[in-house]
Every structure is written in structure tokens, then in C-alpha cells.
Design a protein around this nucleic acid. Sequence first.
DNA 1: ATGTTC
Length: 474
Amino acid sequence: MSEIKLQRVSKYIYEIPQQAGMNVPGTVFISEKLLKLISKDKTLQQVRNVACLPGILKASIVLSDAHQGYGFPIGGVAAFDLEKGIISPGGVGYDINCGVRLLRTNLAQTDVMTRRKEVAEALYRKIPSGVGRGSKLKLNRRDLDNVLERGAPHVVEMGYGCQEDYLHMEEEGCMQGADASAVSPRAKDRGIGQLGTLGAGNHFLEVQAIGEIYDTDVARVLGLSEGQIMLMIHCGSRGLGHQVASDYIKKMEHEYGIERLPDRELIYAPIKSQLGKDYLAAMAAAMNFAFANRQVITHWTREEMQYLFPDVTVDTIYDVCHNIAKFEEHTIDDQQKTVCVHRKGATRSFGPGRSEIPDSYRDIGQPVIIPGSMGTASYLLIGTRESEELTFGSCAHGAGRVISRRAALRSLRGEDVQKQLESRDIEVRAGSWRSIAEEAPEAYKDIDEVIEVMHELNISRKVARLTPISVVKG
DNA sequence: ATGTTC
């Protein structure tokens, strides 16, 4: 692998100039400190490889939380022309529609602090978590197909939550174009018992307090003030989405071969091809499973909070996707056109006025929700028109690992990590000591720095910083 | 991320 030439354009913007084989340049929106953390892995080579794909428009982009992923970098954005372009499962990620929901409560920090152990314990018991963990919700085959094609509104119809929930989600909780018949029986087998489960890894359910508000005007519209208790749900499409990704990677390798690719993990199908269309229909179905998953977890979380705090109200602020591909309108060379945007570990961050944003937020822009790692802050930001110009309307999505799971297990003990969090008044419940060690704050980048870069570039503006009180992990 | 090696 040849050395990657990186030119500094400004304090937080670097460019990989277009060279032989590349159809566009690479653009890296990052600080010097965060750039150093990815200098030894394949992130920048992956940015360059993506720039070589057919029909890519404007630039192969990574954001401040960039790190190496399967084929495409995580923290990456790539948009493709509908005629000449491609769709790639590696550009979406294995956890299709991994995403985050933020819920607002009417509780104050003081209501919860003294009961934080009880709250962590209760939520841990209520929401199934951990690898391979099943749900108490038993779906039949027909219900599952409805979930896959109709998403969150379908589970609301089944009694899990309210209309106000899905009206405050990307796509109003239902991705159009989903086709349950494009999802393999094996993927359905894996998913049927997993609706309403958190999963493992960096997925979590947290009770958080608003520590700081940066934008009082936006906070007022969203009904937020300092010291207020919020709930954050971070999870995806579980085994179902993982199986959809595996199935279509295999199908595409079989149909198109891997010989001419710079990296076999970049396997793709033309957007216009039958296989490309089939993947898009299956991906949309997996997206809907993830939307419905976060909706069911929202309902159970609301129930449990109402049991613990009888007068509590729990309202959905917004629900964002971090791993998706979508058809969207963007302006390229002063021409408006529909393109296929891959966001892999990236958050949509549309500015004010976009028709995709709920009416109540149309004037302020889209809420951008960015979870921190275990025991660290999370952020609420607001999308901007600048992001539409710079990054196809996309912002970073999280802290991103800085040492591997294996390295974390070598250097950290789960018991010590939990004690250390306890000393900072953070109560953690998880399925295993191992997952606590793997997810230790030390294993992740500095979320404050990741956010600062996005804020300084006006890709999204900071609204509020949220700090954890009770944490449920897989 | 993932029935953590179908």
C-alpha cells in the first residue's frame, strides 16, 4: 500500500489530492490530534479506495471520528450518481441503521441522583441486552414482515408507544422501498426473537443529565434546560441487519467478482442493477427493523420510568440513523440532483428548511444526536446548511475506538472500570465484566474534541452536553 | 456490530 499524501487546507480540513485511479479527491474533516490517532491504521487508504469507486461525486469524505472499518472507513460519507454509481454494503456497515434516540423527561437531576442504582438495576432488568440476547416480545412471521416493511408506525399500532414518537424520527420511522421478501429466511430467523433488545458492544441505554447548554434559542424550541434528565437509546438492527449485510456481500461477490477491486471489502453493485435494487430493498427492511427496535425499547423504558417516577413524562426529541444509504437531493456544481448518500458512522445533519425535518424543527434545523462511549458525555447538536455544502449534510457520529477490544481486555479489568465510574457517580449494569472492560472510556477517543471540530467547521452547532448517571450495557 | 469462527 503506497503512502497517502495529505495536504492541509485549513486548521480542520485536509485533502487527499486526486491521483491515478481516483475519481474524486478525499476530504478529511479532523483536528491534528485526532488525525494522529488514525495515522497507523488503514483509514486514509480506505478514504482513497472509496474515491476510486464508479460514479462517486465531489469527494470521498471522513469526519472527525474517522477510523478503519470494513472496506469503507467509519465516520465516512460517500455520495453516488444514480446512473453511473454503485451501492455497497460495506459503505453502510454490518449494523444497518445502528442509530440513536434521545428522549426528554420532566425530571430534574436531583430526582434521579439518589436513586441511580435502583434506576440502573430496573432498566437493566426491563430491557434485554447482550450478544445473542432474545426479547420477551414474540412476533409471528407475518408481524415480522410488517415490521420490516412498515417500521416504527407498525409497532406503535401494536401498542408500543405513540404517534408523536415516530413523527420525531428520521423518515418518520419508516424507510420507503422496503421489501420483506428481499430479506433471507435466515436473517428473519435471527431477527424474529430480537425486537426490543439492545445488543452489545457500544450499544447502550442511558439516563443522562443536561450538564451544559450552548444554544439557548434551540434548547427552548426543544424544551431543554440545564439539570434536566434525558434518556438515550443507542442500538441497531441486531442479527437481522448483520445477516442482510453478509447475505448481500456474498451475492455481490458471486455476481461481480472481487478481482478488479482495490479491496474485496469494497464489493458493490450498480444502483440500477437488479442486485443493487434488491440490496436497497433489504437494507430498507433492516432499517425499519432497527427503527422498530428503538421504538419498542422506548416504550419499555417509558413504562419502567413511569413505574419508578409516577408523574414522569417521556417524549421523543428525535431518532437518527448512523449506518445507512439513502436517496437525497443535494447541490453539486450549482446543480440540484438526487444522489445516493452512504453514511457509515455518520449522522444526517440537515439545516433549517429541509422538507425531511419534522414541522416543529423546520426553522431550527435537524437535531443531531451523538452518543459518547460508556461513562463519557454525549451531545445534542443542530444541523446546518454548511453541512449540506461540505459533507452532503452529514456530521460525525460518536467517539470511535482508539484501542482494539483485545487491547482493552489486555490492559483493563471490568471490575476496576466499574469502580472508577462509581467514584464519578455513574452507575453501570452490564451482562459481563468483559464488556465493561472492552467499552472502558480509555478505549475511545475524546468525544469533546470530535464535537469541537464539527462545531468549529459549522457542520453542526452544539446545543447541549449530556452526562451519564445510570448506564445499561450489553 | 455479530448466535464474537457457517
